[in-house]
Simulated assay, not measured.
Amino acid sequence: MIVRQKLNTFKIFFTLRGSIVPKIYPQILLVTLLSVIVTIVQHLSPNTFPSYGTAPFTLLGVALSLFLGFRNNASYQRWWEGRCLWGQLVYDARSFTRQVLSFVDEDTEAGREAQRSMIHLTIAFTHAVRHRLRGTSPWQEIEPFVAPTHHTAMHQAKNLPDYLMRLMGKQLGEVRRQQLSSELMVQNMDERLTSMTIVLAACERIHNTPLPFAYMLLVHRTTYLYCIMLPFGLVASLGWVTPLICAVIAYTFFGLDTLSEELEEPFGLAANQLPLTALSRTIEINLLEALGENDIPPDITPINSYLQ
């Protein structure tokens, strides 16, 4: 995710970090080049492209704007829902840790080990959710927080976060059997685990259910057709200004189209997607501090205004 201070008027036009321009400049160049060719032809032979009027392009532009607006709203809703879900995960992880430290008997070695195990598994679960959503290898970050006896089964699990959640449930059941906490508090802690499971399922739903392909295809086709036809309809009335106007319109429409694609999948590593690495590191730091451990990793800070 891009993290930067408010830009002044001058920097707005020259900032590329986080901008959509690097992804759409081929389309902008194509439309601009086509517009230049059409303008030159019209200048050399004024009757080549007669004036059709701007009404058809105005109507089509309005329709395309509505399509792009609906799609961007749908993509942003997915992005915002993903952020809300990770906010819920932060809340659940902190609340579960507080309950474990407050209500699991720490006067015995078994109680202290249960506290440490469940909190470490919560950290591992958080990292596992992030890696599952991004399709990256989780083992380096997760293995230190999981007992070696579970490593073989963990590597064989089809859904790693769900496997870790089952381990946490078994550990909580062991706390109940050893009477290290009251029945009521065990039930409350289990509700926190259920809430984290709901977050996992909701994130998987967003990740595995893209916007309908037919709708995306319609927007793509209409955007290309509109921007390619535009110079032929404007050249008779605008003359040499046609390439500039067409370039600006292409930037707007192709930019909205590409930005909606980026926001549609909020859990990736693109510049405008969610900073899951920073969020999971925040959870890790908070939980290790609560546990009283000294080997705490540093916060993840933005690099060149980019926060992973």
Rank of each mutant, 00 (worst) to 15 (best):
P298M: 04
R177Y: 08
E293C: 03
F103K: 01
A124E: 03
I283R: 00
P266R: 02
I285Q: 03
Q115N: 14
T32E: 05
R112P: 04
C84Q: 10
A201G: 12
P56E: 03
A74T: 02
L211T: 13
P231F: 06
I28D: 00
N304D: 13
A110L: 12
E106Q: 12
L259R: 07
T15L: 00
R176D: 11
Q77N: 15
G53F: 05
R116H: 12
T222P: 03
E143G: 06
R116Q: 14
I28M: 03
Q156C: 12
L64H: 05
V199Y: 02
I119P: 09
V248M: 12
L274D: 05
L85C: 04
G169E: 13
A93H: 01
T108F: 03
T301Y: 09
F254V: 14
T277G: 09
L172Q: 08
I206Y: 00
P210F: 02
G53Q: 07
W240Y: 12
A270I: 00
D92M: 08
I20F: 06
L33T: 12
D257F: 11
T197E: 09
H151M: 05
Q77D: 15
I300C: 01
T301R: 10
D105W: 01
L101W: 00
I142E: 06
D105G: 02
Q273D: 11
A201Y: 07
K158P: 04
P161N: 08
I228E: 00
Y76G: 11
I249M: 12
